[in-house]
Design a binder for these strands. Structure first.
Lengths: 199, 199
DNA sequence: ACCTGGTAAGTAACCGGTTATTGACAAACA
DNA sequence: TGTTTGTCAATAACCGGTTACTTACCAGGT
């Protein structure tokens, strides 16, 4: 047997991400994590203190990877939405962990408030608190993220309603185009001067 | 003590909605439901068979109430988005139960595929599979629902990034306006003839 | 009006299995 | 030798589900 604490730590974290992403904090089983990690149950407590601690660590890893892989390009929100969609498609655990977090432990995990604040400031830049689109930057950001994830959080019956297979490559590509176009429309300059939120 | 099986059934279902919405299927505790319902644990199994059966029943009630209270007006999607936002704000359990469903039991709960199919057909009506906006109707529907719920599923750090209290009445009203305007832009006829999805 | 027996509704105690967590100890490294 | 890393088995609490039982209600005979 080779002893390598860092490797064991990583195997545990990987297994935890798989387990928590599938079952959530309440549904996850420490035994299954230990087995999947090919590690002893005890080492989980040595390295991560508790089930909650392991969940928090998993949250940090998954969401950290996401924000690193999909940088928030505030000057190109449609592109950001498209790349976010692509990433979530390849990494379903990122979206699932975010949802578990929202439902089970909203206060845990990374806090990116300052990062967001900077981006929002950059978007507003001289526009009197509004973007060129006439929408408040924070709202725009939230809405664009809603667009990016909407397909992946919609119930099956809605996705299947038009008769196509919602996860076929063609369907996904078509929806990606729709979503990027939608984001483009949100970001386009307002047509009526004064915009939808007149002062 | 007054004996009324229908009333007991309802108390149990109400308590179950509160419990499942707060903790999910795996996190919910039958004992707590029984206590909150002022009913005996046994009656839960008499009326609903199992924890899963009770969860499914809760799903049907909550989502049934939602689709009844917020009719899908396919000829007025911005209005639909606004009303959906209002409802979800007053009934957080509706959104939470939908999320638990997606994560824990995607196959359970009501199936509205036919209803959606009809709406989508109506939206497409003669447009060669596209709406006047140039977007496929199914995509448009999914995206609009994404807009309606985006604020309520966003992480706290993003909502707070612009310094305001994300759940103050003023902030909510402002975001509602943003979201309805966003839906309006998605539904507006495409500016470039041929649209974003040329044949 | 008054029993009375059957049934629906409700209750408390309990059970077997599971679960997170820990203590005691052995093996490997430095 | 002392420290780190890993193993095994125990423990204490918990939880979904069930058993055995009591209480209220009511139809119909007398």
């Amino acid at each position: 047997m080779v002893r390598d604490s860092a490797a064991t730590r990583n195997r545990i974290l990987d297994a935890a991400i798989g387990e928590f992403s599938a079952y959530g904090l309440a549904g996850a089983r420490i035994d299954r994590i230990a087995e999947a990690a090919e590690a002893n149950k005890r080492s989980i407590y040595v390295y991560y203190e508790s089930k909650e601690g392991l969940f928090t660590a998993a949250l940090h890893r998954v969401i950290g990877d996401l924000v690193e892989a999909v940088p928030l390009t505030e000057d190109d929100l449609p592109g950001y939405a498209g790349r976010m969609f692509d990433y979530l498609l390849v990494h379903p655990e990122a979206l699932r962990m975010s949802m578990w977090r929202h439902l089970e432990r909203p206060a845990k995990g990374p806090d990116a408030a300052e990062v967001y604040a900077h981006k929002i400031e950059a978007m507003a830049g001289g526009g009197g608190g509004l973007t060129a689109s006439g929408l408040p930057p924070a709202d725009l950001l939230v809405l664009v993220q809603g667009l990016a994830s909407s397909w992946l959080i919609s119930p099956e019956d809605l996705l299947c309603a038009d008769g196509s297979d919602p996860y076929s490559p063609e369907r996904l590509a078509a929806h990606r185009a729709s979503l990027v176009e939608a984001a483009r429309r949100l970001c386009a300059p307002a047509q009526t001067p004064g915009g939808p939120n007149p002062p």
